[in-house]
Design a protein around this nucleic acid. Structure first.
Lengths: 211, 211
DNA sequence: ATGACGCTGTCACGTCCTTGTCATCCGTGC
DNA sequence: GCACGGATGACAAGGACGTGACAGCGTCAT
């Protein structure tokens, strides 16, 4: 069935990858940047619902269209609850699958605050999680706000004043070196443990996050 | 809001009519042969609940999705009692509205709102039952509303303000620590007896329900 | 009526973390 | 060597959070 669908999609000029188990799908979706996922409920090993849940908790927010042979109400509800965006019952017309996939991709996924990524640094404003690669980093509120400011303008040199305006509540007028101190604290958490150097000092101008 | 939803639905290739009052909605639904009704609770004149009841007694059996600005328990119960088939709390993702409308139109019958599951926590808005695994948990009204707010956005960090807006009826002055107190009470019921730690504190930001 | 009881929101207090400042140290350009 | 901008360790003050106690309120059975 998966191969059949894949052949049909390729025939439409789209590209598609096939995974035969839930684990495989999660790995593939985490690696590749997929636009939409077609997920059969009946899978060897972990089933489609669980796969969908794990995809979501793995940070994959691509729309999921669930395929099921059964038309039971519980299945549909379970599918939607597991984080599915649409539900199609087998047997179906291939044109309908296409139409639904088009509808799903047109919407551009769930409107959830998108995580910011710069290199292997990832910052999720919604969950307030920060990851260097696959290792979570614990930041305080101010450190988080500062890093977010940097990640919204990767590569740009940001002045101390700009950083103060964006990561601190009130604009400090006085000659404070808070920014310097916090850049140092940030470096100690996101760079030093990993031997990196993403936060650069630009003498006389400010700091920049290397893209 | 109604115009916004209508535009979104039309964009999906569906057709939609807008009514701005309860009376208008009843007249329109009685004339046209509608598939599903989206009904805001807050309406000028007769409110959403009463509108729903009158729709039913007028012989309109199309599924009704109630829209509520607040997540108050009373609203939900009232909405379901008035003959609503599902309810959605503002603000919501448009994709979720679509998914629920699809689910409503696909099934012909009247099903109640689907239970929410996060890990082995289960919360059924319709029956007001909460289970940790297979063990039922007894919650007060406020505790229930708070937990439901968390379970609608698992993994996300929710600010005290967001929690107040969604689980409490009126907006409190932010000097109060009700949220802290109730998070504590919730922890004592859903976490401590089970040695879990699903409700995390995010210093300087709020709380989050671990997915 | 009355008392018991549970729910709700407030408050005070203790603990621990965060925050911003300061003094000092370091490297670079003159 | 010297001046300057930046880095860093130490630290005090304040803030954020958790918790127990408590009063007001409504419900319910007596």
């Amino acid at each position: 069935m998966a191969t059949l669908i894949r052949r049909g999609l390729v025939h439409e000029g789209l590209s598609a990858d096939v995974a035969t188990t839930g684990e495989e799908a999660i790995d593939a979706a985490a690696d590749a940047d997929v636009d939409v996922i077609v997920l059969d409920v009946m899978l060897p090993g972990i089933d489609g619902f669980e796969t969908c849940r794990r995809l979501r908790s793995a940070g994959v927010w691509a729309p999921v269209l669930m395929l099921s042979a059964r038309d039971a109400v519980e299945d549909r509800v379970a599918g939607l609850d597991a984080g599915g965006d649409d539900y199609l019952v087998k047997p179906f017309a291939f044109t309908e699958l296409l139409a639904r996939l088009r509808a799903l991709t047109r919407r551009g996924g769930n409107d959830r605050a998108a995580p910011l990524c710069v290199g292997d640094l990832r910052l999720d404003p919604a969950t307030r999680e920060v990851m260097r690669g696959s290792i979570p980093v614990i930041l305080s509120a101010t450190e988080f706000a500062l890093l977010e400011t940097f990640m919204r303008r990767p590569g740009e040199v940001l002045s101390r004043l700009h950083l103060l305006d964006n990561a601190w509540d009130v604009a400090y007028e006085n000659r404070s070196n808070v920014v310097d101190v916090y850049v140092g604290r940030l470096r100690r958490k996101i760079d030093e443990p990993f031997g990196r150097c993403s936060l650069e000092t630009v003498r006389g101008a400010g700091y920049r996050l290397r893209p």
